[in-house]
Structures are given as C-alpha cells and as structure tokens.
C-alpha cells in the first residue's frame, strides 16, 4: 500500500466511524441494534496498532482512547507499570518509549504506533537484575514497592540523560516520581551508586 492508498483507506475508515459516531449520538434505538453486532461496532471503533514492548512485537486493535498505560496493564497484562494518579502527577506509570522516559498514562496507545516501549519487566537480563534494580534493593529504595517500577525506569533515564551528577541534580530530576512511603534519600543513594559504577544501560 502506498502512502496515498493509506490516506484513502484511512479517509474511508473515518467516514465510517463518523457515521457510527453520529448514530451513537442521535438514536439509542439504532445504537442498540448496532450493539447486537458488537464485532462490527468494535471494528469501527478500534484501530490497528503495531507496537514493540520489551522486544516483543505486538499487532493489536485498540480504541483510540486507550492509553499506553491501560494497554500495558489490561491488555498485555504487564502490570509492573503502575497506575497511581492517571493524570501525569505521580510518575508511577513511567516507561521508556524509544529510549525516553514518559508518563504512559498521558500517552494514547495509538500515538505509539511503530514505537519501542520498555517497561520494568523488560530491563533485567533473565535472572540478572539491571544494575538499577540491584541498587534499589541494596539501598532499600522503597517500602511498599508500588511506585518502584516508575522510580527505577525514571532513574535509569536520569543517569542516561546525564542528570545524575550530584545529589541535588538527581533529586530535581527524580521529582516527577512520587514516593509516598518517603524512600527518597535511599532512591538518591541508589542512583548515585549506579552513576558511579557507570552502569547506566
């Protein structure tokens, strides 16, 4: 399929979905009839998505409103990435997309078409933990463990970005990850250790 074809088929698709949307809004009776064929309804509401997660390629069909976070947790059952606030205010959902740390709760899954996502489940090498995972254990950089995957994903990026040159810099660049148990000083210790060891990747 060439680009123009893609655009055309997309345009057709949009026409159809527009019709569906109009139905949804205008007539409950018609929608109810439509519901009898859920498959058709979902076909029109869903989009194809190609996404690589932790090195595994996925071909999925998702509603555009599904966030990357909910895709990971509810559809791919990768629950290591956490939902804490769902509004980009806690950092528990931090993952790497094409190597950059982001809040997966504010990213629509369809916006990540063709991208590579790395989650907490994808950073260890088999049974060998990532140096940052080791460092979090060594320094007890957590208590309940719920914000921890987000902290670790953020911490790995913090070192890679070159923002781990002092305690103060680490503190500032790790402030997008809230730890309600208050393990902050130990988290900074962990990042410092990895930075010193040069084990950032």
């Amino acid at each position: 399929m060439n680009n123009q074809d893609q655009k055309d088929s997309r345009r057709d698709f949009l026409k159809k979905t527009t019709a569906m949307a109009a139905l949804t809004i205008s007539s409950p009776v018609l929608v109810k009839a439509g519901q009898h064929d859920e498959k058709i309804a979902s076909f029109f509401e869903k989009m194809d998505l190609k996404i690589e997660v932790n090195g595994v390629a996925h071909q999925l069909s998702v509603e555009p409103r599904v966030t990357l976070l909910d895709l990971l947790r509810e559809q791919l059952h990768l629950t290591g990435t956490k939902k804490g606030c769902d509004h980009g205010q806690c950092g528990a959902c931090t993952v790497h997309v094409d190597g950059k740390r982001i809040n997966s709760c504010l990213s629509l899954a369809v916006m990540n078409d063709g991208k590579k996502v790395t989650t907490i489940e994808g950073i260890a090498d088999g049974d060998n933990l990532h140096p940052m995972q080791e460092a979090f254990i060594n320094h007890d950089g957590f208590q309940c463990g719920y914000c921890t995957p987000g902290q670790i994903m953020s911490a790995i990026a913090c070192v890679q970005e070159g923002h781990a040159n002092s305690r103060e810099e680490i503190q500032e660049f790790m402030s997008g990850n809230i730890c309600r148990c208050g393990a902050y000083p130990h988290i900074v210790d962990a990042v410092m250790e990895v930075k010193k060891g040069g084990k950032s990747s």
């Binding site: 809040n103 500032e172 790790m174």
Partner: peptide, 12 residues
Amino acid sequence: INAGASAQLRNM
C-alpha cells in the same frame, strides 16, 4: 523550561 512539570512530561 526546566522549572516546569517533570522530566517525563518535558519528554512528551
């Protein structure tokens, strides 16, 4: 720029 939001949000 660095005074706003968080590192993750600034990456998006």
